[in-house]
Design a protein around this nucleic acid. Structure first.
Lengths: 144, 144
DNA sequence: CTTAATTAAATTGAATACAATTGAATTGTA
DNA sequence: TACAATTCAATTGTATTCAATTTAATTAAG
């Protein structure tokens, strides 16, 4: 296994990442069920808990998602009463998303989610940090 | 950034993996367009190029996908004339997938795909191997 | 042998992703 | 100022992905 430059599925670095990402996603499902969120809804809330009142575009830049994906997710969060969408009066192209009281309160319930997931992931801190570093190296390289 | 156990999107190891996987997937799109395959179709063909005449179940175990995902993918490959589906006579629950002549011939056209993608990924060999190792460490840990 | 349990594939329904397009608003420029 | 180019969100259409269920076949247990 000296390089990935072969048509063997086991040798495919990109496939390993893809499978890994999907398997981790499945770990979230039962944990996020408890707070009635999907993974995409959850990461959208993470952004909002960190920066309330943010444009859809800016959420998309952080999450690497476009409005085609985000618009329906934000609408679903709005339907749950967790966020509100407000078109900017300064620039009417922009829709800003803000947390409701319920949305803010959910943060408390969500605070144990990362720990629960990492328990199942089975990496020690050193490997976790290394994996994180390599993922962002790829992301930065692609973004250029 | 000493741990990932916080509700900050930038600190989320799992998010990094998820974003990384999706961004790499986008790199494949224009490259696989040239041989008229989607990513899911491509990894299915990778399995078949390595082991022709394989049950849907066994493809699924390799790709971490269930029949709900694989059945339509295999049918789309069949429609393109790349594979055939044959129900086993020994055990009629099983559907075996085999390559057609066209499916086998496509392998030659696909052989440069990995190299083209890795050029864009921007990792040297050492980092690539490390990322691969960590992904499979997670996958093995989840699979138990 | 007969029935219960298991297995494999397919189906259904919900939620993503993403490319491409649309429409409205804003910005840049001659 | 006019008008072309750009930007942002939404929409549309296609392809996944997965949980849950269904159907048919096989295996196991009594």
């Amino acid at each position: 296994m000296n390089n990935f430059n072969e048509l063997s599925i086991k040798n495919q670095l990109c496939f390993a990442l893809y499978a890994c990402s999907r398997e981790i996603n499945k770990l979230y499902t039962p944990i996020l069920d408890e707070i009635n969120l999907t993974y995409t809804q959850y990461i959208s809330m993470l952004v909002l808990w960190e920066k309330d009142d943010i444009a859809v575009k800016d959420m998309g830049d952080i999450l690497f998602l476009d409005s085609g994906t985000l618009t329906p997710v934000i609408k679903s969060l709005e339907k749950k009463g967790l966020v509100k969408r407000n078109r900017s009066t300064i620039d009417e192209r922009i829709v800003n998303v803000t947390l409701t009281k319920e949305g803010l309160e959910l943060k408390e319930k969500a605070k144990d989610v990362p720990a629960k997931v990492y328990c199942s992931v089975g990496l020690d801190k050193e490997d976790g940090l290394e994996l994180y570093r390599l993922c962002y190296k790829v992301l930065d390289s692609i973004k250029k």
